[in-house]
Design a protein around this nucleic acid. Structure first.
Lengths: 239, 239
DNA sequence: ACCTGAACACCGTTCAAGT
DNA sequence: ACCTGAACACCGTTCAAGT
């Protein structure tokens, strides 16, 4: 018993710790300089998600990767949802809105929508958060909306329809982001195949036809229909 | 101490319990007739979701509402995700596909899509589950796909495009289901309003204009664009 | 086969104590 | 103000024991 107990902790810790590459163990109490901030938390969360996925993003794991106790995080965020919000806003800044203002409207929408889908298809657990997210709490997300709205206005879109069109496009983008993550054989009816002959035939026919990823073919089909439909709403514009 | 201990449990339980309206406490061991099945679990889960929302749907709460221990559930489902799958398949049967085969294609798609959105807008936590769900495990969901596929084929849709069109419509429906749940002031930029003038103007303009719910206006706009765009893919058909 | 009851390995979050 | 450490009230899931 004594032997195993001794192994748990060094018997005489040095009063002044020797210089070491190991992170010095922090004593309780306020550190002289804050070790955490929202940017650092965001970066660590993204790193964790990239390595372990969203199941690996726990407050404990996040704290560990930052070298602090879990409770320390709550000095900088109100909840885990706040962390997800920080991540979401970071990702919104990566969505490509550069074509609005430089390219024709349809080209700009196409580039924006594909980029938006690609970014969030790797982060679908954020979608429920975004959908309910007041934009006031997400400045980079808001900046994205501003760029897109300006693009629609300059393209001659009637102002009262701009938000509705963006909301509809965004709904399609989010739904399509989930579809990207679906398993390839999601439409395999298995033993029930003979009970759904039309469906099975259509699935087989698509598989025989396609070269591109089915999820990309579907996204392209829907996006082009939306662009065509919404393009007809535009009023005559000079340039 | 003796007093409090006595209060925890009746000191002498009757060997044969007297008839009572209280549910008789089950002893350990296999009951003579199974008390659980998948239908009962599904019904109890729906009831729980309806009363307490998805946060209230825990394996413990589900077991309690069924009068069993939580571990008993695992004789009938493999995991909590299996429970969500049972609920999803039940809801799929409530989606209105009745217009396929009796009404024109565009009317049928319109009725299906609105119904699909309405059903799942109250059950958005299922959407991540459906998106990755192999249809072989969800017979009622599969039956819905069969009805829609047959409707598209009979309307003269080229077979190799049917699945892509359905996937695109479904993506839009799922994204729109989230939008229904969004708070009304989701687009209020707050103190950042002056930094996003185009966006703020468009949001204000929409608010001044609309009578219907903004989420319904956006859904209608997108759905009609998709119906128009996809309708053009149809080949000439006799009836 | 199908139940109970105890246990396991987690969660997110709170809060007193320390500097 | 910003950290540690202990504690709280949960989770979903496993498994031996019982009939």
């Amino acid at each position: 018993m004594l032997g195993t107990q001794a192994a748990e902790r060094p018997p005489m810790p040095a009063p002044t710790p020797a210089p070491s590459t190991l992170p010095a163990r922090r004593r309780a109490g306020r550190p002289t300089a804050a070790v955490l901030d929202q940017d650092g938390i965001t970066t660590a969360a993204l790193e964790l998600i990239s390595n372990k996925g969203y199941n690996g993003l726990t407050m404990a794991a996040l704290a560990r990767s930052l070298g602090v106790a879990p409770s320390a995080l709550y000095n900088h965020v109100g909840s885990k949802d706040d962390v997800l919000l920080l991540v979401e806003d970071h990702l919104a800044a990566m969505v490509d809105v550069s074509a609005f203002g430089s390219e024709p409207w349809d080209v700009a929408v196409r580039r924006w929508a594909w980029s938006y889908r690609d970014v969030f298809s790797e982060h679908t657990p954020l979608i429920p958060v975004i959908a309910v997210l007041p934009v006031a709490n997400a400045p980079k997300t808001l900046a994205m909306y501003e760029a897109v709205t300006a693009g629609f206005r300059d393209a001659g879109f009637p102002e009262e329809k701009i938000i509705s069109a963006i909301v509809a496009l965004e709904a399609f983008v989010f739904g399509a982001a989930y579809d990207v993550t679906a398993p390839e054989d999601i439409f395999d009816a298995g033993s029930l195949a003979e009970q759904v002959p039309n469906f099975t035939a259509a699935v087989d026919r698509l598989a025989a036809e396609e070269h591109a990823r089915p999820t990309d073919v579907a996204f392209n089909l829907g996006l082009e229909a939306l662009i065509t439909g919404f393009g007809a709403l535009r009023e005559a514009v000079s340039d």
